[in-house]
Nucleic acid binder design. Sequence first.
DNA 1: TTTTGATATGCGCTTATGCGCATACTATCG
DNA 2: CGATAGTATGCGCATAAGCGCATATCAAAA
Lengths: 97, 97
Amino acid sequence: MSVTRVLSALAEPVRLSAIRIIWDGGEHCVCELMQRLNATQSRMSRHMGVLKAAGLVVDRRDAQWVRYRRNPDLPQDIVRIVDAVLAAMDKPGKIAA
Amino acid sequence: MSVTRVLSALAEPVRLSAIRIIWDGGEHCVCELMQRLNATQSRMSRHMGVLKAAGLVVDRRDAQWVRYRRNPDLPQDIVRIVDAVLAAMDKPGKIAA
DNA sequence: TTTTGATATGCGCTTATGCGCATACTATCG
DNA sequence: CGATAGTATGCGCATAAGCGCATATCAAAA
């Protein structure tokens, strides 16, 4: 769980938007994310792979879907980073992602 | 002042370490930073340029030196991101940068 | 004005990142 | 089993990032 790794993972618009969606605590399949973020399948899948490798999310097979959700074991210091980033994104003057 | 831009700027070990040093509120010349971070002159200079372009730091000419310091006009939401990142860096189990 | 110290920058190179395309893999359904 | 839906991945390509080297710039000092 490297800080730099986490920052790199967050420093990409599609991934950051995905985190924002996933941060609702629920589970989200790739098909949902790719539609909502207007990304191709392989693009979305790879971005989720990066987020997973960074330790930010975990996945689960559910029939033909793979459900991604926030990593429940994420250290507090990392959670604070993500929360701060998401909060900053919501401020006026900041374009989404 | 884009969130993604800030995250990219922070997502590099030398730059992150530089931010940590600069976040003491004081002014620091490139020569000091390059020594403390064990970087070459051009490397350090370029990294500082990235941090400056991201809006995290400002610089000032002082004789033959250029003094970098924390951008005093940094929006609160961005400050919170940096603070959270630096806090996470200091935790055990996280290698510097 | 020449020299010296500090910093920035053009250039070329190497590596990393992001992407689409096609294809493989996994699981359900008929 | 064959067809279908969702997801991952190998491959090649284009672009960006990071680096060192040499050189330019800028200001003080001799």
